[in-house]
Simulated scan of single mutants.
Amino acid sequence: MSPAVFIEALQQELQLTQYGQYPPELYDPIRYIMSLGGKRMRPLMTLMSAYLFTDDWKKAVRPALAVEVFHNFTLMHDDIMDQAPLRRGQPTVHEKWNPNIAILSGDVMLVRAYELMLNVDADQLKPAMARFTQTAAEVCEGQQMDMNFETRWDVTEAEYIDMIRLKTSVLLGYALELGGLIGKADAESVAHLYEGGVNIGLGFQLKDDLLDVYGDPAKFGKQVGGDIIANKKTFLLIEALEQASGSVKEELTDWLNRSEFDKAEKVKAVTTIYDQLGIRQITEARINSYFAKGLKNFDQIKADAARKDFLIQFTQQLIERES
C-alpha cells in the first residue's frame, strides 16, 4: 500500500462532494478554501488508522473528509480573528469576499462536516459523533486561550502546551481515533491512536514555532521571524522569558516593549538572545520527546505489524519535513 492510494481516494471524494449551490456567495467560499490544498494530513491519518484494522478502509473516506472540512472551517474563522490576508499563498476568504460571508460560509462548513460524519457505520456512529463534538469544542477552547494570551505576559509553559494541545493537537488525535473506531479496533488501540496523534501534534506545533525562528525561508513557506516581530507567545519566547536574567532579560524586555523598530534588527537581536540561552536546544529536545511518545503510542497498537509499520513510517516522513 502506498500513501498515494489514500491521497487519490481523498481527492476523488473532494471533487465529488457538494456543499450547496445557492446563494453562490454562501457556497463559493467553501469550494474556494477547500481547493487551496494543504497537506491533508488529518484525513490521511484517518484512512491509515482505519487500514490498520480493515481492508474496507474506503468506508472511512467521507468521515475523513468531515475532519478536513471541519479543519478548514476553523482556518476560515481563525483568519478573520487574526485579520490574516493570505492562506496558503492566496487571499483569505474574508479578504476575497468579506468577513460576514466568511463567518456564514464557515458556519455551513461546520454543518456539512457533521453531515459527512453521518457516513460512519451505525454501530460506531454515536461514539464517533460524541468524540467529534467534544473535539470541536476543545479546538474552540484552544483558540480562545490563544487570543487571551495576546494580552498577557505571564503565560506559563504548561498553559502554552495546554493551549496548543487543544487548538491543534486534539484534532489530529481525533482523526486517528476516528479511523480506529471505523475499523472497529479494540478500545486500548483506539486510545493509543488518539494519544499518539496528540503527542505528534504537539511535536508538530513546537516544530512550527522553532522553524519560524530557525527555518529555511525557501522550505518553511512563510516569513521566518514573524512570531518574533509580532511578540507572539511561542514556546521559545515563554522559555526565554523564564530562563533570562540580568542584562539579557533587560534586553529581551526592551525589544518586546518597543512599538517602533527595524524588523530585521529585532529578529536578529531576539534570535541572538535565544542562542545565548540555548532555547533552540531546549525546544528541539521537547519536540523529540513528543515525537518519541507518539511513535511509542503507535507501536503499542494491536494491529498487523506491516500495516502498523506503514503508519509509523508515514508519520516519520511527516516529522522530517521542513515545511
Rank of each mutant, 00 (worst) to 15 (best):
A218T: 08
K249A: 15
L193G: 05
D262Y: 07
I279H: 06
A191G: 07
D275C: 01
E150F: 09
A240W: 00
E239M: 10
Y160P: 14
K58D: 15
I279A: 11
K249W: 02
R88Y: 05
F204K: 05
V224H: 03
L256I: 00
I33M: 12
M145C: 04
I30R: 11
R131W: 03
E242G: 10
L178F: 13
L16S: 14
K302G: 01
W57I: 09
R131K: 10
Q243S: 11
M76C: 15
S2T: 09
S2N: 15
A66S: 14
M145D: 14
G278F: 15
H94A: 08
L65Q: 14
K207L: 12
R280I: 02
E260H: 10
W57H: 04
L44K: 07
V61F: 09
N257F: 00
R40D: 10
L104K: 08
A102Y: 10
L277H: 11
A102V: 10
E141S: 10
W153G: 02
Y274S: 06
D79T: 13
N148E: 13
L211E: 11
I312D: 01
G142D: 03
R152W: 15
L206A: 04
W255F: 10
S259C: 03
D154R: 08
V198K: 00
R280C: 00
D107M: 10
G278W: 15
Q90T: 00
I103G: 14
Y194R: 14
L176W: 01
E150C: 12
G246V: 10
I182P: 06
P3W: 08
K184C: 13
G37H: 13
F73M: 15
E68W: 04
A137N: 10
L318W: 13
P99A: 12
V270I: 12
D299R: 07
S259R: 12
L178H: 06
K39S: 03
M145Y: 07
L110A: 11
G142C: 06
G106Y: 02
M163R: 08
D227M: 07
F70H: 11
K293H: 04
M129F: 14
I312T: 08
A113C: 10
F73G: 13
L65G: 12
Y19L: 13
M1G: 11
T46G: 06
Q316V: 01
G106V: 07
L318N: 13
Y32R: 01
E177D: 06
P91T: 12
D208L: 03
A191N: 13
L125P: 03
H77T: 08
R286N: 09
L14F: 15
D28C: 09
E260A: 12
L14T: 12
I200C: 08
G180D: 05
I273W: 00
L125V: 05
D146N: 09
D212M: 07
I200F: 14
I228W: 02
F298I: 00
